[in-house]
Write a protein that binds this DNA or RNA. Structure first.
Lengths: 193, 193
DNA sequence: AAAAAAAGTAGACAAATGTCTACCCAGTTG
DNA sequence: CAACTGGGTAGACATTTGTCTACTTTTTTT
């Protein structure tokens, strides 16, 4: 529980008192998920966005041929959810499941809006989250459209070593948009440089 | 000038008076760019984010081999700029130039922060912009890592017909991460379906 | 420890995409 | 009108990446 408190303070310039935090906390729902359990299934509305207290989560899209494409990975102190579905309450095209046993703190969009009005610090945190999220996705797009698979993997390994450690290669491969076979080749080749 | 006013009202639930708007407006700088002129050059800090009143802008990244990779395109009522550089005042890796003669309304990060404190409606607009931007980039990433070039082009054409009309094929090709040659082939093939 | 499941590697082949050169076409400019 | 420029197409070939099947290694479960 403390992790969220730290997170809010880290991303906010305005102080948050213990009492404020108690009220904020009361709007979050704690949830435990065991490995392989779903947080969101395709077609369902993503009613909650979740702060990851513990564990590792995977968000993916299943195409017409039944192939899974990983669009997002999250570990401790990251947020997970389908933004569009969460905001618009529209059915999601994504599936989110727990890759490890995980603990989450979930909150609805409505409650975020409400709390943001009460606590400017929370609004600020959300804004900064959005901001850094935008910056990160911009980088990912730049990488995806302009670099080779080899370069994308190298960049990823450098930027997210912890993620690399906790997910198997084929999940990472999917995240950077290639198959496990290609990643295996790239890694082998990389050893001789 | 009116376009920005409309934009703010459209994206904000809180009313904005004419007087408020006058003050907001005074923080924006009007700028005209002729075709091919730069709005941002690689290595420079992106001091301003710009609202496009008129014209068409192109944002791209130049790789080690001198190849240009289009990361963003913008026309009327869109915003353009390098978010990371703008927020952190760090040198940008991107170049932004005018594809058509254009008119912009530019604003610094500092001024946005200041105005957001004065006008909740502006803060709300910014938040919604971020939100929809996040949703759009998420979709683009999903498309980039999981669809074929053909599918990506089809999706693009459907979602942004106006952009398609105003930029040449090779710019669109770069935007979706392929070469002009490949796009040419895809389009030819598409005629027979 | 044995068995089963999950993850990674390898190689052969196929498909998609990139590269390069040449040429065409349309609009603009001298 | 000729020359030029920007954009698009075409085809030959190279490279990258995907697909599939088989096998090995590692991890988990029993």
């Amino acid at each position: 529980m403390e992790a969220l408190f730290h997170y809010i303070r880290k991303y906010s310039s305005i102080a948050v008192s213990e009492e404020d935090f108690e009220l904020i906390k009361s709007h979050f729902t704690y949830k435990r998920l065991r490995k392989k359990q779903y947080f969101l299934q395709e077609g369902d509305v993503c009613r909650y966005f979740a702060f990851v207290l513990k564990g590792a989560m995977r968000q993916y899209y299943v195409d017409e041929k039944g192939m899974e494409h990983v669009v997002q990975l999250a570990i401790e102190n990251w947020w997970v959810g389908d933004r569009e579905s969460w905001v618009k309450l529209s059915p999601s095209r994504y599936t989110i499941d727990a890759w490890e046993n995980s603990e989450l703190l979930m909150i609805s969009y409505q409650d975020v809006v409400k709390l943001s009005q009460l606590f400017p610090s929370l609004a600020e945190m959300m804004r900064k989250m959005d901001e850094s999220n935008n910056i990160a996705t911009q980088k990912r797009i730049t990488s995806a459209i302009s670099h080779s698979a080899e370069r994308r993997y190298a960049d990823f390994a450098l930027e997210y070593p912890e993620i690399l450690r906790r997910f198997p290669q084929y999940v990472i491969a999917s995240y950077i948009g290639i198959t496990k076979d290609t990643l295996s080749r790239i890694r082998k080749q990389g050893l001789n440089n």
